[in-house]
């Protein structure tokens, strides 16, 4: 009887480490269970591989090439603008016989040739990186969305797990970036793709499609521009001897400015939501 408290103390001393062991074991079991469940859930989530690392690198490189081209052209185009302004202010338009005007026209022509040369030098690099990006995306889109998916699964990918409008806000903006510098456009693409891991497949599919179609258009545009440059250079070399400013010259410069530096007045039209906003909670048993 006298030994009873001592026994109890001894028992408590013995059970304490055992309890700790139980707690540790239970914690390990719980962690293991959580890991298994999480991995299982991840394995069940359909993931689409649309952006391999090569695409991300290609986008970055295209952005750099575009920036270099812009930097090179910005100064020349600025000079061309000033010369054109001077030509108009001097009322040279139509004054073909005037020697001063002819000199001015030759200067403009020479700057124009300089612009064409810079473009001719930079465009092959640009074309190469744009085509690489396009080809990688093309392969991904064809395999992942074209061959592995039916129209219904594609729709489900776009809608995501829930069809709530909250997903709309996180989705990337659709096409129509004419008011943006080319390098900015690629920088934005790069940022979107590089941070796309956190977003759902629905954003990725739209983003990949958006970039792919843009690359396709850009590639065709570069191809046409390269052909045009060869022709325009020849024409301008001939014109240099006469000191003529052709309307085509002004048009080409305008086109280059639009492609490279964007148009400030062009804004993407985005459809606004219809008025009112009522929360919907009802789900029909017929809903799919």
């Amino acid at each position: 009887m006298r030994n009873a408290p001592r026994d109890a103390q001894a028992t408590r001393k013995e059970t304490a480490p055992r309890r700790t062991l139980y707690v540790i074991c239970l914690t390990i079991l719980f962690i293991a269970f959580t890991c298994v469940v999480t991995q299982d859930a991840l394995a069940n989530t359909p993931t689409i591989r649309l952006f391999p690392t090569t695409v991300v690198e290609d986008l970055k490189q295209t952005g750099n090439v575009a920036r270099d081209m812009e930097t090179g052209l910005q100064e020349v185009i600025g000079r061309l603008d000033q010369q054109q302004e001077l030509y108009i202010e001097s009322k040279c338009d139509g004054a073909d016989g005037d020697a001063g005007c002819q000199r001015l026209a030759r200067q403009i022509g020479s700057t124009y040739l300089e612009m064409l040369t810079i473009m001719e030098e930079r465009l092959p690099d640009m074309e190469h990186t744009v085509n690489n990006t396009r080809n990688s995306l093309e392969k991904g889109l064809r395999n992942e969305l074209g061959r592995k998916m039916t129209p219904w699964t594609l729709q489900e990918t776009l809608v995501g797990n829930d069809a709530s409008p909250a997903t709309v806000q996180s989705a990337p903006a659709l096409r129509g970036r004419s008011g943006m510098r080319l390098s900015e456009r690629f920088k934005q693409y790069y940022t979107l793709v590089a941070t796309s891991g956190a977003k759902g497949d629905q954003s990725l599919a739209v983003l990949a499609s958006d970039i792919y179609l843009d690359m396709e258009e850009t590639s065709q545009l570069i191809q046409r521009t390269r052909q045009e440059i060869a022709r325009a250079t020849l024409m301008e070399q001939l014109n240099q001897s006469f000191g003529i400013i052709t309307p085509e010259m002004i048009e080409v410069v305008g086109g280059v400015k639009t492609i490279l530096f964007g148009e400030s007045d062009a804004t993407a039209i985005v459809a606004g939501p219809p008025p009112g906003s009522l929360e919907q909670a009802y789900r029909s048993p017929l809903e799919q």
Partner: peptide, 24 residues
């Protein structure tokens, strides 16, 4: 309204994604 807006958005997304996928 939100549901209809989402459907309208989905229509445009499908249009874009199909254009890209079919080109590919």
């Amino acid at each position: 309204n939100k549901g209809y807006y989402r459907a309208d958005q989905l229509y445009h997304e499908v249009e874009l994604v199909l254009e890209a996928t079919c080109t590919a």
